[in-house]
Design a protein around this nucleic acid. Structure first.
Length: 418
DNA sequence: TCTGGGGTCCTAGGACCC
DNA sequence: TCTGGGGTCCTAGGACCC
C-alpha cells in the first residue's frame, strides 16, 4: 500500500494558521505579481472563484463577499511544508516529498490498520501544524491520490481514507471523472470523450493496445495503476535538478536595456545560488525575455540567447556576467518587456566534473571561497544582503500589495501574543 | 490598469555510423 | 519500374505535474 498526504488548499490554509479570525471565511492567495488566484479556501471555491482566475476579473466577487486576499508568501509556505513533512517522517520510515503540499508514504510490508492510520495521521498533522491534511491509502500511487480526494469531498472520513477492496475501488472509479485522474491531462480529454470515456472506470475498461497507441507509455502506466498494478516508482531519494529556471513577470513593462539587465542579473544570481546549493556545475545558460501577450495593440517580441560554459561553472560572477551579456544581445529597442528569465541546464555533480587541465586553479579556488562567503552571509542575513553592483537594489519589479508577515522565518515578524 | 512559476518524462524524427 | 539494413545519439516539442 501507498499513502498520499495532501494539504488542503495549502497556501490558503497557511495564511489562516496565524489568522484564525479567517477560519470559515473565504480566503484566496495570488500568484506572483498579484496576478491570479492560485489557492482558494473552500468558502472561496464556493463563491465560484476558479483556479487561475485573474484578480481583476474577480474583483466584484472579492469585494462583495469580503474575500481575504493574500500575495504569495513562499517563505511561510516552505516553512509550513517542512513542518508537515516532519510529522509525516515521524509516522513512517519512507517519505517521498512530491511537491510543496503533497507527499507519498511507502507502506509496503507494513501490516497496519490503514484506515485508522490515515485518520490518526491527519489528526496529528492538524494538531502539530494547524494545516488540514487529507491522507489516502490504496494499492497504487494513482489510487492513493483518488482516495485522498475523497477525504476532501466527505468530511465524515475525518481526513483519512483506506481504499483497497476491488468492489469499493470500482464504485469510486465509476463516480470519478477521468479528467481528474493523476496523469490524464487536458490534451487527452477530447480523445477520451470521442471514445465515450467519462469516468476513471471507463478508462480502465479500454483495451491495452488502444491505451498504448493513443496515450503511449505514461497513459499505459496510469491505466495499470487504476487497475491496481503499481508501476510508478516510489522515490524517496531527492534527486539533483537537471535544470534550474528563475523567471518573473514584471509589475510594469521594461523598455530600458539596463533595467532589464539588472533584473536578469538578479534571476541569474538566484539560479546560481540554487545550483551551488545542490553542489552542481552548469554547462549551459539561457536568457529569455518577452513582451505582454495580452496587450494586443502593443508590438510583440520574444527573444532568447544561449551561452555555454565548456568547463562548467557554479561561479556567481561568471554566471551573472554571462546572463547580462546574453540579455544585451537579445534586447531589441522599442519593446516593453513584461517577463524575463534565466535557465541553467546541462547540470553535473561538481564532484564528478572533469576540469580543464590548463585552467587557473588558484583563481578558481579564490572564486570558490568568495562564493561560499557570499552564500553564508546571504543565508544568515537574507537573500541579496551581499550582491554584485549590477544587481542594483536586488529587488525584482513586482507587485505584492497583500503580503502577510514572515511569521516563522523573520524575527521581526514574530506574532505578538498578549 | 490588472493575466504565475518551476519542473519532468517521452517520443518522433533527423543526423550520423558501418 | 527499380534505390539496403541495422543501429545509436541528440534534440525539439508535446504532455503532464504541482
Amino acid at each position: 500500500m501507498f499513502a498520499l498526504a495532501d494539504c488542503n488548499n495549502f497556501f490558503a490554509s497557511c495564511e489562516r494558521v496565524f489568522r484564525p479570525d479567517l477560519n470559515g471565511k473565504p480566503v484566496i492567495v495570488l500568484s506572483n505579481n498579484d496576478g491570479c488566484a492560485v489557492a482558494r479556501s473552500n468558502e472561496a471555491k464556493a463563491l465560484g472563484i476558479k483556479m487561475g482566475d485573474p484578480l481583476f476579473k474577480i474583483r466584484d466577487i472579492v469585494e462583495r463577499n469580503g474575500v481575504a486576499v493574500f500575495s504569495s508568501n513562499f517563505a511561510l509556505y516552505g516553512d509550513m511544508s517542512r513542518r508537515v513533512q516532519t510529522v509525516l517522517r515521524e509516522a513512517v520510515p519512507s517519505v517521498e516529498v512530491y511537491s510543496i503540499d503533497e507527499a507519498f508514504l511507502d507502506l509496503r510490508g507494513l501490516d497496519w490498520d490503514f484506515d485508522r492510520f490515515a485518520k490518526e495521521l491527519s489528526a496529528r498533522c492538524w494538531k502539530y501544524t494547524s494545516i488540514p491534511v487529507s491522507v489516502g491509502v490504496a494499492p497504487t500511487k494513482t489510487l492513493a491520490k483518488i482516495a485522498s480526494k475523497l477525504c476532501k469531498k466527505y468530511p465524515k472520513l475525518k481526513g483519512g481514507c483506506y481504499m483497497h477492496k476491488p468492489a469499493d475501488i470500482e464504485k469510486v472509479l465509476r463516480n470519478f471523472p477521468v479528467e481528474d485522474v493523476w496523469g490524464i491531462g487536458r490534451r487527452s480529454i477530447p480523445k477520451l470523450a470521442d471514445m465515450g470515456v467519462r469516468s476513471a472506470w471507463d478508462f480502465t475498461r479500454l483495451h491495452e493496445n488502444a491505451v498504448r497507441r493513443l496515450f503511449a507509455l505514461p497513459g499505459f502506466r496510469t491505466w495499470q495503476e487504476l487497475r491496481g498494478i503499481p508501476c510508478i516508482e516510489f522515490e524517496d531519494q531527492l534527486e539533483d535538478k537537471q535544470s534550474i529556471c528563475v523567471s518573473r513577470s514584471f509589475a510594469h513593462d521594461v523598455s530600458d536595456v539596463s533595467q532589464l539587465c539588472t533584473q536578469v542579473a538578479n534571476f541569474a544570481s538566484s539560479a546560481a545560488g540554487k545550483l551551488r546549493a545542490q553542489n552542481s556545475l552548469c554547462l549551459e545558460l539561457m536568457v529569455f525575455a518577452f513582451t505582454n501577450r495580452f496587450k494586443d495593440a502593443a508590438p510583440q517580441t520574444y527573444g532568447s540567447q544561449m551561452v555555454t560554459f565548456p568547463d562548467g561553472t557554479d561561479d556567481q560572477r561568471a554566471i551573472i556576467a554571462a546572463a547580462v551579456q546574453a540579455c544585451r544581445e537579445l534586447w531589441r529597442p522599442g519593446f516593453g518587456y513584461k517577463k524575463a528569465g534565466v535557465v541553467i541546464s546541462r547540470l553535473e555533480p561538481a564532484r564528478d566534473h572533469v576540469g580543464n587541465l590548463f585552467a587557473d586553479s588558484q583563481a578558481a579556488a579564490r572564486n570558490a571561497r568568495l562564493n561560499a562567503a557570499m552564500d553564508t552571509l546571504n543565508a544568515s542575513f537574507g537573500p541579496g544582503t551581499v550582491r554584485l553592483g549590477i544587481q542594483g537594489s536586488g529587488e525584482i519589479f513586482m507587485s505584492r500589495d497583500h503580503q502577510s508577515p514572515h511569521y516563522t522565518t523573520l524575527w521581526s515578524d514574530l506574532p505578538t501574543v498578549r
